[in-house]
Each structure stands twice: as C-alpha cells, then as structure tokens.
C-alpha cells in the first residue's frame, strides 16, 4: 500500500519534471528565435562558401545566376533576394528554403557542404 503511494508520488514528480523540461527547452528555442529576429537587418551582400573553401561575395543588388560546387547547385540573385534553384541532392532542402534577403538568413545544403548567408552593411564594411 505504502509502496504504491510512493509510486504514485514518483510518477507525479516525474510528470512535473517532464513539463518543466519541455517548457525550459521551448523557452530557450523561442528566445534564440527572438534574438535572431530582433538583430536582423536588410542585407547587402551574399556570401557563398563551399566546403572549407574561400567565401565568395556577390552583391544582392546585382541580378545573376551562379553555378556552385562544379554544378551540383545553382544560386539565383534577383530583385534583392537570393535563392537556390537547382540541387542534385534528393531532399532539396536548400531549394525549398526559399528566398533570403535579411541578415542572419541562410541557405544550407548539408550534402554538398554549401553555406550561403546574407551580410549586412556593417559586416561588409568590416
């Protein structure tokens, strides 16, 4: 009888611990999200890096199409926005990411190790 009570008590304690854990992780997630949102700015340049290579910079105000990584991916800059139009990987997450134009926004292709980010005026001057 007493053991059963202890059991119920333990269950309740673990449920509370679960709920607190979930709330704490969600709070961290939302605060990271807020920080990213609050610090974002209009982008000026697009930085493209393939693997461990050097960063290539393209201006967001110049329209163009760029073939990356020897043809595995294709990046388009048009109307102040950058987006991926072609990828040879099966999940095509980078294409589905859509258009990016604000600082902090990025397109990532994990299989081909491509990392595209938007730089703001401050970062470009530096």
């Amino acid at each position: 009888m007493q053991e059963k009570e202890v059991n119920v008590e333990g269950k309740r304690r673990r449920l509370l611990a679960d709920v607190i854990l979930i709330l704490v992780i969600l709070a961290i997630g939302f605060s990271v999200f807020l920080i990213v949102r609050l610090t974002e700015d209009e982008g000026v340049m697009v930085a493209v890096r393939v693997g461990d290579g050097e960063e290539q910079l393209y201006s967001l105000s110049v329209d163009g199409e760029y073939v990356l990584n020897g043809g595995t991916n294709k990046l388009v800059i048009s109307g102040g926005e950058a987006y991926m139009v072609e990828a040879n990987c099966p999940d095509r997450t980078c294409v589905r990411t859509g258009k990016i134009s604000k600082t902090g926004e990025k397109i990532v292709c994990l299989p081909n190790k491509i990392y595209i980010s938007i730089l703001g005026a401050e970062e470009v001057l530096r």
Binding site: I22, L26, I28, F33, K106, Y115, S117
Partner: peptide
Amino acid sequence: AAMAVMQTPWLITYLAPLLISGVIAGA
C-alpha cells in the same frame, strides 16, 4: 557537427526551430 564541418558558428541560429521541433517530436 554542421558547425564543425562548415566552420560557421552562425549555424547556431538553427537551434531555434530545431529545439522546438525536437521537443514536439520527442514528446
């Protein structure tokens, strides 16, 4: 791992959606 492979600490911003989705899927 992605931060190590791509050498870009800024990928850490991905933690925001990934933490939230991880909680939902995990629960």
